[in-house]
């Protein structure tokens, strides 16, 4: 149907289009997730009918705690541990606020408290010859070291370099280590007894610029005084060429002493700038 709007001067506009800004329809909550530190993540999808929303507001029940964001998900904090909550979400624009969505399923925020950051070393310009975690507190069950890094090794075009791990500054031959490593073409398995350190691996300095080796090491029951101490590590170095290396290592320190110090020593020269080592305690 054609429409003419006549203006006062006698002219007119044919088939005018009028935009009506409407209040949004309520979104739909798709899931709510306990994040383990007293918070909840609320995922939702906007309605595809009604007005376009500028923001969304999640409201808790009980407590009427609110959080607003321009998109999903919305992170709810300041909740009480152990209290069961449901959540609703509204869509908002300058015209108004939608009705509330259907309430979410119930979720109870928890506080796991099982994984703590103990100490971190970020290597600066000039590098360092050893990474030392000292005065490691007892009270956790296991330790984990997460690292990226590269050593000073540049000879031979080998992208990886060994790193050596010692506990409590013990340099005697009471370590046992087995590992397999691969270069993408062959796999090698090596076992060594009565050595003075444990093995892991990071990148050498022949790796392409900005590339880093990676290491994930777990040390089990470290403060026990009746068992020898065991560790496992997954590590290696990858880059955007055919030259790479990976290692899976498992070892034992034949001592019943509780571990209170860990030293990580590069196979060659210093750990380079931007290497990053973080020690965590796990209950």
């Amino acid at each position: 149907m054609d429409t003419n709007i006549k203006l006062g001067s006698g002219s007119s506009i044919s088939n005018p289009k009028i935009k009506v800004k409407d209040i949004p329809n309520p979104p739909t909550i798709t899931s709510v997730v306990d994040n383990g530190v007293g918070g909840v993540v609320v995922n939702f999808t906007p309605s595809n009918i009604g007005g376009i929303a500028d923001s969304y507001t999640v409201t808790s029940s009980p407590g009427s705690i609110t959080s607003t964001s321009s998109s999903s998900p919305i992170w709810m904090t300041n909740l009480n541990y152990g209290t069961a909550y449901t959540f609703t979400v509204t869509a908002n624009n300058s015209t108004g606020v939608s009705s509330a969505s259907t309430a979410s399923s119930s979720v109870t925020p928890t506080f796991i408290g099982s994984y703590d950051s103990i100490q971190t070393v970020a290597v600066g310009a000039g590098g360092v010859s050893v990474i030392s975690f000292t005065s490691i507190p007892a009270g956790y069950t296991n330790l984990q070291i997460r690292a990226i890094g590269r050593t000073g090794r540049s000879a031979g075009g080998t992208v990886a370099d060994d790193v050596y791990i010692r506990f409590n500054s013990d340099q005697t031959s009471v370590y046992t280590n087995q590992y397999i490593y691969s270069n993408g073409s062959n796999i090698y398995a090596i076992g060594e007894a009565n050595i003075s350190y444990l093995y892991a691996q990071l990148a050498g300095n022949a790796l392409t610029q900005y590339a880093q080796g990676i290491m994930l090491m777990d040390i089990y029951d470290y403060s026990n005084t009746t068992k020898f101490k065991t560790m496992t590590a997954q590590c290696g170095a990858s880059q955007n060429t055919a030259t790479m290396q990976s290692m899976m290592s498992g070892g034992m320190w034949r001592s019943t002493s509780a571990i209170n110090r860990i030293d990580i020593i590069p196979g060659t020269a210093n750990f380079q700038q931007y290497s990053h080592f973080a020690l965590y305690g796990i209950r």
Partner: peptide
């Protein structure tokens, strides 16, 4: 995925995988 938010270095990753058919799979990548 380590140090994912930094803008100085590339981003290395490790994956441990049990495909479900009895094999095991280990990946180091970047």
């Amino acid at each position: 995925i380590m140090n994912y938010a930094n803008t100085t270095t590339f981003k290395p990753y490790i994956c441990k995988n049990l495909p479900g058919n009895g094999g095991t799979f280990f990946t180091v990548g970047q």
